[in-house]
Amino acid sequence: MNGGHGPGGGHGPGPFARGIAWATALYLLLPLSIVLPVSLTDQRFLSLPKHDISWQYYHNLFTSPLWLDAMAQSFWIACAATAIAVICGTLCAIGCWRLARRSTEVIRALMLLPLIIPSIVYAIGLYRYFAWAGLLDTFLGVALAHGVTGIPYVIVTVSTALAAFDPRLEQASRGMGASLRQTLAWVILPRIMPGIVSGGIFAFIHSWDELLIVLFIASRNVYTLPRRIWNGINENLDPTMAAVAVLLIGMTLALLLLDMALRRRREG
């Protein structure tokens, strides 16, 4: 974490900047500092462990069909949403890059709308359309919603990768007789693959812990992990939810670390 550089640059962070950086980091970790101990509680309700640390709720999580089912649903929905986001986002980013007109700037900005529009507004809108299309409370509907809202992440990372792509490589490829499809498959895609993978990871995380849209468009059939937690909190205070939360965070963290590791390997 880069607490801050003096205006001169090249100096290490001062004590003030360093303090703020650590405070920020701790603040970000704060929820975890509650959830993690609670998930290890020996009590029967959401609370800190009293006498002993217990793994019973993790055991519960991995044996209860309800939670296992939610986990599987979340996982497959995230996979499908990632596929949609990666395919659409990559194609859109490449298209805008190739045409490179003022109009494509507008299109690119439009594709970032899901990041800008409040989720709740988006969810309400989706509800109306999905009701009309019969997609409410279906796997496909949730995957579509998550996929579309995941597109901006892919567009941003792929566009960044394309900005660093040497356009002469494309010319060289065409000059040697490659069709557009061959150039895409053999030259452009391999060069921007790191950007695509990064975007895919973010799109997966986005779907993995998305709650608001699911609350609107799912009811009986589709139960993702975040929705299961939400319902659990409203109905009973089962500490298994803390274990699930730790699992959610753990998955996200693992993916972020994967992304970082891939980046480092590419640069190193």
Binding site: R168, L169, Q171, A172, R174, G175, M176, G177, S179, R191
Partner: peptide, 20 residues
């Protein structure tokens, strides 16, 4: 005629070799 149909070899300034 588009470049991919011309069958010309080309050495670009900076070579434009595929790094991957």
């Amino acid at each position: 005629l588009p470049p991919e149909k011309r069958d010309f070899g080309m050495v670009f300034q900076g070579y434009a070799l595929f790094p991957h």
